[in-house]
């Protein structure tokens, strides 16, 4: 027998916004459920290192699903006649539907980038449903700084341009093997999906007018951002933390926008103390 990793993957169909979507989910470990939300334009493979780390899986059931339209999850039937666009409401509903379908009892939810934004919405609106939220590279507001039309047009390879778009978001210190694995995920995204996710991340998901209302006594909030992240910069992270009273922020030196996939060894130094604190 090969030396299998401890990760298992399965499919199921859940309903989001009244539509049935076939979802792919991976998990490993047992204990407190830890739901992981991938970045815009990527998929759940970003969390594979967490699922192979006994220091985490001895205490947490680590679960990562590919959002509809991403990775090995399907788009809903009829996708060929519509333009994908992620909104705040559809994103929240999807995460809640997933947790309910999986029958998770007060999971910790950890999201990166746009996932780091949506967990803040969940902390405000569903504080009693989650044990804690962890925002990786998550801020409550970002200003768009590129024209996203470049990401979806027939005269530009969407996968190649999406990867090149984000390549500078990987820190120069990160190992080449994991830098290029992180970018490979972007090269495999469906047409227009990264662009559709950025609608939420850059336009629809602003939250700085409400983030101060989060009650961290009911739902603790952790913010971890990389030094080299030029979208969710250390400054934006600290500004977000200052608005969310009681939140805890860590700036990870020598890290970029994809901590769990670009530099897993460095990331575990930062995430293990957080996970230990949450389950204490």
């Amino acid at each position: 027998m090969p030396d299998f990793e401890p990760i298992t993957g399965r499919y199921f169909t859940m309903t989001v916004a009244g539509e049935a979507v076939r979802i792919y989910v991976e998990e490993a470990g047992s204990g407190v459920p830890l739901v992981c939300l991938h970045t815009a334009g990527s998929d759940g493979r970003q969390f594979r290192h967490l699922m192979c780390d006994p220091a985490i899986t001895d205490h947490y059931r680590v679960i990562a699903f590919d959002m509809p339209w991403h990775g090995k999850s399907n788009p809903p039937a009829g996708w060929e006649n519509r333009e994908y666009q992620l909104t705040t409401e559809s994103y929240k509903e999807m995460v809640i539907a997933f947790c309910q379908a999986m029958e998770l009892d007060k999971p910790v939810v950890m999201g990166c980038s746009m996932g780091g934004r949506i967990v803040l919405h969940l902390a405000l609106e569903r504080p009693d449903d989650f044990r804690a939220v962890i925002a990786l590279e998550g801020a409550d507001r970002l200003e768009p700084y590129y024209e996203t039309e470049w990401l979806h047009r027939p005269d530009i390879h969407g996968g190649m341009v999406s990867a090149a778009f984000v390549s500078g978001q990987v820190a120069p210190q990160s190992p080449d093997e994991y830098r290029h694995e992180t970018l490979w995920h972007y090269m495999q995204g469906g047409p227009g999906i990264f662009k559709g996710d950025l609608y939420f991340y850059w336009i629809d998901g602003h939250f700085d007018d409400r983030s101060a209302q989060i009650d961290t006594g009911r739902c603790p909030v952790y913010l971890l951002s990389g030094e080299y992240d030029c979208s969710c910069t250390p400054e934006r992270t600290e500004a977000t933390a200052s608005r969310i009273k009681g939140s805890k922020a860590v700036i990870m030196e020598g890290m970029g926008h994809f901590p769990m996939s670009e530099n897993p060894a460095l990331f575990r130094e930062h995430i293990l103390p957080v996970l230990d604190e949450i389950r204490a």
């Binding site: 005269d155 530009i156 190649m160 030029c230 979208s231």
Partner: peptide, 29 residues
């Protein structure tokens, strides 16, 4: 940071891009 990548230089306001950007974006990396 902000000087390690061309796009980051642009988004930080430290560099500018002008002209016909189609061939640039087609071969961005």
């Amino acid at each position: 940071r902000d000087r390690h990548d061309l796009f980051n230089m642009v988004s930080a306001g430290l560099a500018t891009l002008d002209g016909d950007l189609l061939p640039f974006m087609q071969n961005l990396q």
